[in-house]
C-alpha cells in the first residue's frame, strides 16, 4: 500500500514538473493558458492525494482552492483579458525554445540533486515533493525571465506559486492559514498584475513590457 501511495505521489508531482516543461515550449497565448489550467489541475490532484495520505482535511481545501481559482477562474479571466484587449496572441521569447528547455533540464537536475542531499533526514514523501517543487519554482522563474509578454510573465509567476504550494502540501503539519494566504497572495498578485496590464494597455496600446522600458528612455 505504502509503495503504491508513494508511487502515485511521485507520479503526480512528476506530472506537475512535466506540465511546467510543457509551458516552456508553448508559443501561442491560449495554448499557454490551457496548459496553465492543466498545471493547476495536476497540482490540485497532487495536493488532494497528499491530503488523503496524511489524513489532513485542510489540504482538501487547498486542493479545492487550486482547482477552482487557478484551474478555472484565473485562466478564464486571463483569456478574457487577452480577448478584450486584443493582445497579440503569439508568445515572444527572448531565447529559443530549445535553449530554454535545456536550461530547464539543467535546473531540474540541480534542484533534484540539491534537495535529495539536503533533506536526507526527512521522509520519502517530503523529499520527492520538495525536489519537484523546487524544480517547478525554478522553471516558473525561468519562464518569467525568458518571456517578453506580460501575460506569460504572469503565468510564469503563478506556476512558481504552484510549486510553492506543492512544497507546502508535502511538508506535514503546515497550518492551513499559511496555505490560504499563499493562495490568496497569488490571487492578489493576479488582480494587481491584471490592473497593471490594463494600465499598460491604456497608455501604450500594448502589453509588451518593453514598452515600459521605452517609457524609461532606455530600450536596450
Amino acid at each position: 500500500m505504502d509503495r503504491i501511495a508513494f508511487d502515485i505521489a511521485h507520479l503526480l508531482a512528476g506530472g506537475l514538473l512535466l506540465v511546467s516543461f510543457m509551458m516552456i515550449y508553448q508559443d501561442r497565448m491560449f495554448a499557454l493558458l490551457r496548459v496553465f489550467a492543466l498545471h493547476a489541475v495536476v497540482l490540485s490532484l497532487s495536493v488532494a492525494w497528499q491530503a488523503y495520505q496524511q489524513g489532513a482535511a485542510h489540504l482538501y481545501v487547498t486542493a479545492a482552492i487550486a482547482l477552482i481559482f487557478k484551474g478555472i477562474v484565473i485562466p478564464t479571466a486571463l483569456r478574457r483579458i487577452v480577448q478584450t484587449l486584443g493582445i497579440h496572441r503569439e508568445v515572444e521569447t527572448v531565447v529559443g525554445v530549445g535553449l530554454t528547455m535545456l536550461a530547464g533540464i539543467g535546473l531540474s537536475a540541480l534542484s533534484i540533486v540539491l534537495m535529495l542531499r539536503v533533506t536526507g533526514m526527512a521522509d520519502v514523501f517530503t523529499r520527492e515533493d520538495l525536489a519537484f517543487a523546487l524544480s517547478v519554482v525554478l522553471l516558473g522563474l525561468l519562464m518569467m525571465v525568458t518571456r517578453r509578454n506580460a501575460v506569460s510573465q504572469v503565468v510564469g509567476f503563478m506556476s512558481l506559486e504552484n510549486g510553492l504550494i506543492l512544497a507546502a502540501a508535502g511538508a506535514k503539519g503546515m497550518p492551513l492559514v499559511v496555505e490560504i494566504s499563499v493562495a490568496f497572495s497569488v490571487l492578489i498578485a493576479f488582480i494587481v498584475i491584471g490592473v497593471f496590464l490594463f494600465r499598460i494597455r491604456e497608455r501604450f496600446d500594448s502589453v509588451d513590457v518593453s514598452a515600459l522600458d521605452e517609457f524609461r528612455g532606455d530600450r536596450q
Binding site: S111, V118, L138, V145, R148, V209, L212, D213, R219, Q220
Partner: peptide, 23 residues
C-alpha cells in the same frame, strides 16, 4: 538603468548560482 526583465534575470541567476554553490 536596466530593464525589468534584466533585473529579474539577475535575481534568477544569483539564485541558481547560490543553489549550485551549495552543492
Amino acid at each position: 538603468f536596466l530593464t525589468i526583465r534584466r533585473y529579474l534575470s539577475m535575481v534568477f541567476l544569483l539564485l541558481v548560482i547560490l543553489l549550485a554553490g551549495l552543492l
